[in-house]
Amino acid sequence: MDRTAFEAALPRAGFTESVGQDLPAGDTTPEHSHNFDARLLILSGSLILESGGTRRSYGPGEVFEVPRDTPHAEIAGATGVSYIAGRRR
């Protein structure tokens, strides 16, 4: 999915906020959770999401969601990651 289509779809799905994020290679966000649903689009690089004992890597153009109150950790890939995230409260 491209950024334009992703951003156009967010409000239709109830995601009223969006933020961009860039993380350097190997940067790790320890396990945490949010009080909102998150929908992410990877713009460049890769992001590893660790949740429930499993890990999955996402690359450019991939979209995924993290439901509210879901414990997870985020690890930027070898070249870092740039993404946009929608938030639904």
Rank of each mutant, 00 (worst) to 15 (best):
M1L: 12
M1N: 10
D2Q: 10
R3V: 04
R3P: 06
R3F: 10
A5Q: 13
A8P: 09
A8E: 14
A9W: 00
P11R: 11
R12W: 08
R12P: 07
A13N: 11
G14N: 05
F15R: 07
T16H: 14
S18H: 13
V19K: 13
V19T: 14
G20E: 13
G20F: 07
Q21G: 09
D22E: 15
L23C: 07
P24W: 06
A25H: 06
G26H: 05
D27K: 13
T29L: 15
P30T: 05
H32T: 05
H32I: 04
S33R: 15
S33Y: 15
N35W: 14
D37K: 00
D37P: 03
A38K: 14
R39P: 00
R39A: 02
L40A: 13
L41E: 01
L43A: 05
G45Q: 00
G45H: 03
L47Q: 02
I48M: 12
L49F: 10
L49A: 11
S51H: 10
S51W: 02
G52I: 01
G52D: 04
G53F: 04
T54A: 11
R55P: 11
R55D: 09
R56K: 15
R56A: 07
S57F: 06
Y58H: 08
G59E: 06
G59V: 03
P60N: 09
P60L: 04
G61R: 05
E62P: 00
V63P: 00
F64V: 09
E65G: 08
V66G: 05
R68I: 12
R68D: 09
R68W: 06
D69C: 08
D69S: 14
T70S: 09
P71W: 01
P71A: 07
P71L: 02
H72Y: 00
A73G: 09
E74L: 08
A76V: 02
A76Y: 01
G77C: 09
G77Q: 03
A78D: 15
T79P: 08
G80Y: 06
G80P: 08
V81S: 00
V81N: 01
S82M: 04
I84E: 03
A85R: 10
A85Y: 00
G86H: 05
R87S: 09
R87P: 05
R87W: 09
R87F: 12
R89M: 02
R89E: 04
R89V: 07
R89G: 09
